[in-house]
């Protein structure tokens, strides 16, 4: 994944286990995801599967789970998120990061942490009561002003994922053409699942307004789009703070 993950945790009344062991567990989970799903490590199970050296039945069970979510994201996005149409072969990477961060947050919550935020390279999820106020305040990075925010969102729980072309150059691919896409400077999706929000943000960045309309129709999900020239649009329920 090549991403840093940060954790913010708030203990509850009954003290959960040590911070150190909780983080160690969460990081172990992330490293395992990296080992299984890496598409640039040639000997990872997913790399071997992509080359046809490993049968689908022999893959670790989490690959099946991720591919089912990819299927769902493809359907919900009207095909604008499509891991099966990537130039280098099937590539679920666009959903894996969000999925793994979501899993890390669920694990920490199950360990007894009252509230927290896990942020994997700008795709984050929050649970429990925020440190102050009624909602978590999440800034959306401005696509052109590196230290600025485009807006602030207020979310009680769930995910915020942002895709864009401003940090990595045009790394997103249009599944219809297999070519780099430039439909958005920045595309943000909020909703209960970070795995889906991550994939939908990628779809939104590639598909633009069409995908915005699809997300508007999805219960629980909202979207905010900044076009290549800076024009903004959003779904009606986007929780601007």
């Amino acid at each position: 994944m090549g991403t840093a993950v940060s954790f913010h945790l708030y203990p509850g009344e009954g003290a959960p286990g040590s911070l150190h062991s909780a983080l160690e567990k969460a990081c172990e989970g992330l490293h395992r995801v990296e080992e299984v799903f890496s598409t640039w490590q040639p000997d990872s199970p997913v790399s071997r599967w992509r080359r046809g050296e490993l049968a689908a039945e022999s893959l670790p069970p989490e690959v099946g789970e991720v591919m089912a979510l990819c299927e769902q994201a493809k359907r919900l996005s009207g095909g604008w998120f499509d891991p099966w149409s990537m130039p280098g072969g099937t590539d679920p990477t666009g959903l894996v990061k969000g999925w793994s961060v979501e899993a890390a947050a669920s694990l920490l919550q199950a360990e007894g942490w009252r509230a927290g935020m896990v942020n994997g390279g700008g795709d984050l999820t929050v649970f429990g009561p925020p440190p102050q106020g009624a909602a978590w305040r999440i800034g959306v990075q401005h696509p052109w002003r590196p230290e600025g925010l485009a807006c602030v969102l207020e979310v009680a729980s769930g995910a915020v994922a942002t895709s864009g072309t401003y940090q990595r150059g045009p790394h997103l691919v249009d599944p219809r053409t297999g070519r780099p896409a430039v439909a958005a400077a920045s595309a943000t999706v909020t909703g209960p699942s970070l795995a889906l929000a991550d994939a939908l943000a990628t779809a939104l960045a590639v598909g633009g307004a069409t995908v915005l309309d699809r997300i508007a129709a999805l219960p629980g999900y909202e979207a905010y789009l900044i076009g290549p020239e800076g024009q903004e649009s959003q779904t009606p329920g986007m929780p601007f703070g």
Partner: peptide, 19 residues
């Protein structure tokens, strides 16, 4: 804000980013 959402900082050359 409590956190910041944004596109990943990644150097394709080094396959690493951090946040």
């Amino acid at each position: 804000v409590n956190g910041v959402s944004g596109a990943t900082y990644t150097s394709e050359a080094y396959l690493i980013s951090a946040q």
